[in-house]
Amino acid sequence: MGRWQDRVKEWLVWWRQQEWFSGGLKTVFQKELADNLSSTRFTILVFLVAVAGVGAFYVAAQSIRQAAGEGDPQFVFLRLFTTSGGSLPPFITFISFLGPLLGLALGFDAINGEHNKRTLSRLLAQPIYRDDVINGKFLAGLVVLAVVILALGFLVAGLGLLLIGVPPTGEEIGRLFIYLLVTIIYVAFWLSVSLLFSLLFRQTATSALAGIAVWLFFALFAGMLAGLIADGLFPVSEDAAPARILHNATLKQDLSRLSPTTLYDEATVTLLNPGVRTLGPVLVQQLEGAIPGSLPLDQSLLLIWPHLVGLIAATMLIFALAYYFFMRQEIRAG
């Protein structure tokens, strides 16, 4: 019985021993965690994101109240996150736009900062594995981000209870929780991007700017660029054939899905709005005979499964690149 269990046990013992021998990961992790939490830029950013999020949420709550009687009363709780009120975009948009900034802020000077402060060679001369440093920094950033995002999400949920007085259903809580998890993965992607840039560029200002450039590109320009390319390959005039219009739309979407921002936006809209039944272009005949209604959670998840896999893969890929560069980097000071 259970040869693999023995294997796992052996591996665990071995792993613990390694940990005991080095212990560097834990120490680096704890220090980075403390550094992150006490840094000024972190306080500023959390404040910014929290104000934007809570503001958007408050406006949404107001407009939901007004429209309370009119629309269908399903998923009122989730609408707190997706309803825009007047001039303010919804909570979900704010997080999608500002979340990357959180990730970038925690990592852009992770390695080159140590280099410039000349602490890297002293740190690596201690008896720790080299990857303890980058793993510890990544994990510490990830935990801080997770704490912030979960706290913000539950803060808004709690306020929502107070403001509209409609308790969430189990499914709504599940959707909210998964939404927050996906947000953590998305922000972790940006954390690993900034870690990579902190290795590629010697100046912290350069790596911060490079991170912001990539962020703006994905947030604003990637969609436009996808549209441009799609229009160039399949120009759509007023009287274009339906097949061509479909080609154009599909290509545009496929291209923009190369951007993690698009993946994240599509995934979160599907999660928080059960009315979303499909993410691609829909033909009229496909709608024939369809009964309007919302998707259950597992079907929503099925719809965005590729998005989640894509996001996780992109995060791991970028982190793997950063890991590789860090392990190959020459330590030469100055």
């Binding site: 000349r118 002293r122 001369a125 201690q126 008896p127």
Partner: peptide
């Protein structure tokens, strides 16, 4: 590294 201590050229510390 466990038995050797190293003072790098122009050593740096965490300023904060």
């Amino acid at each position: 590294k466990r038995i050797a201590g190293y003072l790098p050229d122009n050593v740096g510390f965490y300023d904060d």
